[in-house]
Design a protein around this nucleic acid. Sequence first.
DNA 1: AAGTGCGGTGCACGAACGTGCAAGACTGGT
DNA 2: ACCAGTCTTGCACGTTCGTGCACCGCACTT
Lengths: 319, 319
Amino acid sequence: MTRDSRLEELYTAARMYYGDERTMESIAGELRVSRSTVSRMLRDARDAELVTISLRPPEAQRVEELARRISRLYGVQVHVVPSAPGDDQRERLRSVTEAGGALLDEMLEPGTTLGIAWGTTMAALLGTVRSRPVPGLRIVQLNGAINTEGSGLTYIATVLAGAATRWDATVHQFPVPAFFDFPATREAMWRERSVQRVLATQREATVAVFSVGAFDAEVPSHVYTHNYLTREDLSSLRSDGAVGDVCTVFLRADGTYRDIALNQRGSGTAPDRLLRIPRRLLVASGSRKALPLRAALRAGVATDVVVDEITATSLLSLR
Amino acid sequence: MTRDSRLEELYTAARMYYGDERTMESIAGELRVSRSTVSRMLRDARDAELVTISLRPPEAQRVEELARRISRLYGVQVHVVPSAPGDDQRERLRSVTEAGGALLDEMLEPGTTLGIAWGTTMAALLGTVRSRPVPGLRIVQLNGAINTEGSGLTYIATVLAGAATRWDATVHQFPVPAFFDFPATREAMWRERSVQRVLATQREATVAVFSVGAFDAEVPSHVYTHNYLTREDLSSLRSDGAVGDVCTVFLRADGTYRDIALNQRGSGTAPDRLLRIPRRLLVASGSRKALPLRAALRAGVATDVVVDEITATSLLSLR
DNA sequence: AAGTGCGGTGCACGAACGTGCAAGACTGGT
DNA sequence: ACCAGTCTTGCACGTTCGTGCACCGCACTT
């Protein structure tokens, strides 16, 4: 008796027992052996891992159901991270960025150019990356991060550099303000070769990762707290109907953004340019982000989305 | 009692029973219910699919073991298709192309540019694609297919068009000979704008799919049977030590190809250009293909490989 | 040819399990 | 407050299952 044909027999017995839910007695009759032999065959089949019994926690089902519905509505791949009832917003952000980081890690292959839009969520996400060299990985910032007081650059540079070290990647920083004071400056800068070089690298990105900002998120977005915007800016945004931002480009609830005044002065990568990046991962946590998240999805900026369960529920309950 | 908390209880019981292999009696004691209740809880847990019992045919294991070994040796993702002992070569080709087609389908996302190298295997593979529109999908031929008598184009065009229809894709044909008679003609043509355009599209490919040709495969490769090569060509190849081809570019057993004379006249995409395509799927069936397959893997042309079990075994038994 | 060790098999018994049944708990209506 | 209907639980019984033990056949040794 070869090893293989024995496995075949074990498999047959296992199929009759677990698959067809027959009794050992009846299987024994058919195979012309004693019932105890069948009992032993089944044990061996389990040991040989011909039969695997897997447990799936109930949250997996809730979460898959949510993911399916969002996926159907907006045509994106969705990963919903389960959140225990007790979890506060910080804990949910942690688990979402962890899941997002793992997913991002899967997307990186040798030679990838990765675009990153700066923000609170991304800082947390980059903190989760484990050490794994990705040959030829380039990281390029998708938006400027300098604000009106001091640069804010050091913090960003530190976090980016940390991740870059663990991936063994090169970083292409984008040393411009998040928002210029005058549209003309932006236009002028965009003609500069140093900026052109970064913009070119952005165009070569094959993977992008970013979040959405909300005006009143639980964990406030960088843009709305760190002196990036004046009071006048905020009221201008409100009157333009903006609900949040992607890559520091502001969006209305319906996903439009072109005629929002402030966008003329922002340095972020707008949806039309983002859409040229093949794989675009949006990571978001916080039910307040549901509205801008929907705007982002309507603008089609993401191919993959990672959200926590509560945010997913909020998103689906928007009317 | 909410629906969710009941599921939690069911899950707890299921974990204790199937996970920790405890007896219903003991679980009943801990949960302070009767044993029969536990029995019913377990039934409900199974019904709710908190517990799934899956059967894995023994061939899955053989196949995964082979895939793991090849994967480790050549650093590619491998899918080995099991073949029943009775299967002849045609049947194996069918199952491999079917699996390859399914894998390719997963790789296609909106906006993909797909490079296809023409050949017998690809014809079979394209025949398996199911109808699923992929917005913005472009298909570009990676090698010319015209031979010395008649064009051979109609057949290719038909098969390509069939797949393109089912994907709702546009086809960019490459209307040049598989092999020019004179290297100079190739150089001249390569300067033509019409050819340049196709070459540019090839460079934009994000997914490539191709097979390997072997001099003496069971199902003979197109190139060696359809008047693509003269007797002189074949003897020249032999003296250059070629063992087969990828994309109608000939390779030696060690994966080198640059100084093989005939390659100066071929229109196929050479490994160096192929390597710039992010995702490269190699589909091959037939133990005779093992040698050129190894050459292809040594040249690093594939990121993903689909082979049948027998071919995989042959590949691993090469010394 | 007899001896020896070993993997596999059936028997028999006790443990583990599924399920019909009746009693109790709960719900919603009068 | 009472009742009818439904759902849940525990009990009891018959079934199904795991396993220690004795036995058998085979291979290999002496």
